[in-house]
Structures are given as C-alpha cells and as structure tokens.
Amino acid sequence: MPDQRPYATLLAKGEERRQLILTVAQRLLTRNGWRAITLGQIAREAGVSTAGLLHHFESKEQLLHAVLDARDASDDAYRQLPGDLLAKIESRAERFHRAPELVSMFAVLLIENLDPDAPLHDRFFTRYRTSVDTVAEFIRREQRSGRYRTDLDPAVKAVEIVAFLHGMETSWLLDPSIPLTEVFREYAGSLARQFAPPGDTP
C-alpha cells in the first residue's frame, strides 16, 4: 500500500499556508481596509508569491469572503453557547478579548461596504437581517412563555440590540480602554428590567 505520509504532509503545509494568508489578510484589512490593499501586499506580508496566494484564493473578493467566513464561524459558535439572550449579551465582552482581530476587521469592512454597490454589501446586509430576525424571534419566544412582557415590539427591540452591539465594536476600536465587561453587564441588566412582566423584579 503506498505511503500516504508525504501527501498528508503536503496537505498540512498547504492548510498552514492558507491560514497564514487569512491571518495576514485580517490584519491588513483592519489596518487599511479592502480598498487600500492588494493581493500582492498580502502575499508579501505572508511570505508567499502572488501566484502562491492565488493557488488558495482565486481573487481578492474570494479572499475577502474567506476572511469573513472565519469571522462568521466564530460568531456562530458563540451563538450556540448555552444561555439565554441576556446572558449572551452580558458575556459579549469575552468575545472582544478572545478574538479582537475579528471584531476589528468586521467593523472596518462593514463601514466600507455600506454602499449597495460595494462587493460585500449584500453579505453584510443578509448577516445583519439574520441577526435582527434571530434576536426578534428569541424575544417572541420568551413573550409566549410569559417570561417577557408582551407590550414591547420584538422587531424594534431587536434592531436596538443589534445596533448596540455594532456600536460597541466601533466605540471599542476608538477607545480600547472602555470597561467592556461592565458596559455589557449594565446593558443586559437594563434589558432584563425592560423585559420583566409587570410585577416582576429581575
């Protein structure tokens, strides 16, 4: 039976190089935005040729999507952690500290792709709508169970919550000294008080 180890080693090295390119792209995108960087710059920083980069990513747009795929995977893993909506919001600060480069990159690319003609606009818009719909559905579920008051509009509240999360990302980029843990804890507490049915004290 042929020895598979050389092939496996080659695959491992290829994946390692691909991850290095993604890491470098994240850093440069955060620093310069997507308009100001080229595939050649990313390749040089990663220590590979442009042809080597194109072996893993066929275009700049494909690389941008791959970088966002990594961010979305991290975000989805966070959403699947145990705990209700308020607990997740309160623990959001941990995500900032755990993956600051992903938070920074996402905020920069989001601002750059507000124009409907920007290459990543549709992806960001879809992700935003999904986030709002997910939060709104959670609120509706808690309202049906009697845990949340029913005179609040879930769709409006969901927009507020998502806006707060995006706003905190931008604020933190401007001022990394913000006491994230305390801010998120206070906001989660204020939501708990707003959501509490009449007569309940959270």
Rank of each mutant, 00 (worst) to 15 (best):
L114I: 05
Q19K: 10
L110S: 11
R144Q: 01
R18G: 03
R140T: 12
F195I: 03
V162Y: 02
A36C: 11
F164A: 04
E182P: 00
V108W: 01
F96T: 09
T134P: 00
A66W: 06
L81T: 09
T23P: 12
Y78N: 04
A8M: 05
A70I: 00
L10T: 10
L114N: 07
D84G: 15
Y128W: 08
L68K: 08
A118Q: 08
W34Y: 13
T181P: 04
A46D: 02
W34M: 14
A66R: 09
T150Q: 10
S59W: 13
V159G: 09
T130R: 08
A70Y: 05
Y7E: 10
V108D: 03
D175K: 01
L173N: 06
R44K: 13
Q62Y: 01
F106P: 12
T30D: 10
F184G: 11
D151H: 11
T50N: 12
D84E: 10
G199K: 06
G47N: 08
Q194C: 05
E160F: 12
A93I: 07
L29A: 07
Y148Q: 04
H166Q: 06
L28A: 09
H56L: 00
A192N: 07
Q143G: 04
Q4G: 07
G14P: 09
T130C: 02
P116M: 00
E186T: 12
S59G: 11
E16T: 15
A66E: 13
A73S: 07
V156Q: 14
E182G: 02
T126D: 15
P197H: 06
E16N: 14
T9F: 02
T170E: 14
H97G: 03
E169S: 15
D200G: 00
P198R: 10
D72W: 11
L63I: 05
T50M: 04
Q62P: 00
L85W: 07
D153R: 03
T23Y: 11
Y7F: 13
F125I: 12
R141T: 13
F96N: 10
F96S: 06
Q41V: 07
R5L: 14
Q41R: 10
L20R: 15
S59D: 14
A192I: 06
S145C: 01
A51Q: 11
R18V: 05
L39E: 12
D175N: 11
Q62D: 11
V103C: 07
D75P: 00
D76H: 08
P176A: 05
R98A: 15
L110G: 12
R44T: 13
Q41N: 06
V108I: 05
Q26M: 09
L152H: 09
H121A: 01
D76T: 13
V162G: 03
R129E: 13
S145R: 15
S49M: 02
T50Y: 08
R185Q: 14
G189M: 02
G52N: 06
T23M: 07
P6C: 03
D133N: 11
I161A: 01
R123C: 02
P179M: 14
L102E: 06
F96Q: 08
A107F: 02
R17H: 03
S49G: 13
A46T: 03
T181C: 02
P100W: 02
P6T: 02
G47S: 13
E45C: 11
E16P: 01
L20S: 12
S91C: 15
A70Q: 14
P198C: 05
D133Y: 01
L28G: 03
I42T: 11
Y128S: 12
K157P: 01
A70P: 01
H166E: 13
A46I: 04
L102H: 04
S49P: 10
